[in-house]
Design a protein around this nucleic acid. Structure first.
Length: 307
DNA sequence: AAGACGAAAGTGGTTGA
DNA sequence: TCAACAACTTTCGTCTT
C-alpha cells in the first residue's frame, strides 16, 4: 500500500482520493500522484483468467464480484418470493425456474470465458473496480437477452467495457480498447452502440475534460499546464466550439495550446499520438481555439519571456 | 532536418427522404 | 435503402525554425 503524507510536487497536505477514477489528486497543485490504484490485487486476478481458460476443471467458485452467475440465478429462484404467489402461479413459477436453469447451464460456459476475458482487458487498461463490475453486469444482461448471437464474445466484452467506462466518466478511447482486446475499432463501436441501445443504457456524451488528466500525465506535463488546459476547454465549450467534434481532439488541442503557453512545448505529433488523433485534427482545433479565444497573445508572451 | 501548416481526396458513420 | 453530409484521416507538398 501507499502512504502518502505530502504532495511530492508542492508539499501540500490537501490530498484528494477519487476512488472511482482510481486517482489521488493534490488539490493544491492538481498533480495526479497515483492513477494506478486499481493494480492492487492484480496478481490473483490474472491467475484466475489464466487457469480458467486452460483447464475446464477448476470448479472452485471464483470469489470476485464478477462471478459468472451473479445476477443470473437470482432472477427467478428466490425462495421468499414463493410466499407471495397464489397456488395457481406455483406451476408457472417452477416452470420458469426449470427454464431458467436450462438457460443458465447453456450460457454458463460462455459467461465464464467472457468474464475471464473481461478481467484480462480490464487489468491491461488498469480500469477501476467499479467499471469492471459495471461492465460485467452489462455483459451478463447482454447474454441473457441473447445479444451476443451473431457477434463475437470478445467484441461484446469490449463494447460492455467501453460503455462502463463512459458511464463512470473514466473514458478510454476506442483505440485503447481495441489495442487491449485485439478487436477492430469499428466492431467495438458497433457492438457498443447495439448493446447500449438494446439494454436501454443511457450514456452521456463524454466530456473532453475527462481525458485531460490522463493525456497530460502521459505527456509529462506540469499541473499548471493541465489546469490551464481545462480552463481553455471551458472557454471553448462556452464558445460552442465543442459540439459535434470528437472529444479527444478537443482535449488534445487544449493541451497542446496550454503546453505552448507554459513553455513546455510538445510537438503536435506527440500530443496526437497519446490522444489517438492525427496532427491535422489537432491543427484544426488549435486554429479554432486561437481564432475564437484570443490565445495568441498569451503564446507570444511566453515566447518573449524565453529570450 | 524536423516540425508546423494547409490542400485535396478518401473513409466510416449519421441523417433524412 | 440510398444519397447527402460533417467530422476525421491519409497523404503530400511547402514553409518555418
Amino acid at each position: 500500500m501507499y502512504y502518502i503524507k505530502n504532495c511530492p510536487e508542492c508539499g501540500g497536505i490537501n490530498l484528494f482520493v477519487n476512488r472511482e477514477k482510481g486517482e489521488i489528486i493534490c488539490k493544491d497543485c492538481g498533480l495526479v500522484i497515483e492513477d494506478k490504484m486499481v493494480e492492487f490485487g492484480k496478481e490473483w486476478r490474472e491467475f484466475e483468467s489464466d487457469s480458467g481458460q486452460q483447464t475446464g476443471r477448476r470448479t472452485g467458485a471464483p470469489m470476485t464480484y464478477t462471478q459468472f452467475d451473479q445476477g443470473l440465478g437470482t432472477e427467478v429462484g428466490r425462495k421468499a418470493d414463493l410466499f407471495n404467489l397464489g397456488s395457481k402461479d406455483r406451476n408457472k413459477f417452477f416452470r420458469l425456474r426449470k427454464w431458467q436453469y436450462r438457460i443458465s447451464t447453456a450460457i454458463e460456459r460462455n459467461l465464464k470465458l467472457a468474464l475471464a476475458e473481461l478481467k484480462r482487458v480490464s487489468s491491461y487498461l488498469k480500469l477501476p473496480k467499479m467499471v469492471e463490475e459495471e461492465a460485467a453486469m452489462i455483459y451478463t444482461q447482454a447474454v441473457q437477452r441473447g445479444l451476443v448471437r451473431g457477434r463475437s464474445m470478445e467484441s461484446v466484452v469490449s463494447g460492455a467495457l467501453y460503455a462502463a467506462c463512459r458511464r463512470h466518466e473514466v473514458p478510454r478511447t476506442l483505440d485503447e480498447l481495441s489495442e487491449a482486446s485485439g478487436i477492430e475499432k469499428k466492431e467495438i463501436g458497433r457492438t457498443y452502440r447495439f448493446v447500449t441501445r438494446e439494454l436501454g443504457i443511457t450514456i452521456l456524451p463524454s466530456n473532453p475534460a475527462d481525458y485531460i488528466a490522463r493525456f497530460a500525465s502521459s505527456l509529462k506535463l506540469s499541473a499548471e499546464t493541465q489546469s490551464k488546459a481545462v480552463e481553455i476547454l471551458e472557454k471553448a465549450q462556452q464558445a460552442e466550439l465543442t459540439s459535434g467534434r470528437g472529444p479527444t481532439g478537443i482535449a488534445a488541442a487544449s493541451l497542446y495550446v496550454s503546453a505552448l503557453i507554459h513553455g513546455e512545448k510538445r510537438t503536435q505529433r506527440e500530443v496526437a499520438d497519446v490522444a489517438g488523433v492525427t496532427e491535422v485534427t489537432i491543427r484544426n482545433r488549435y486554429k479554432e481555439l486561437l481564432d475564437k479565444l484570443k490565445l495568441d497573445k498569451e503564446i507570444k508572451k511566453t515566447k518573449k519571456r524565453k529570450r
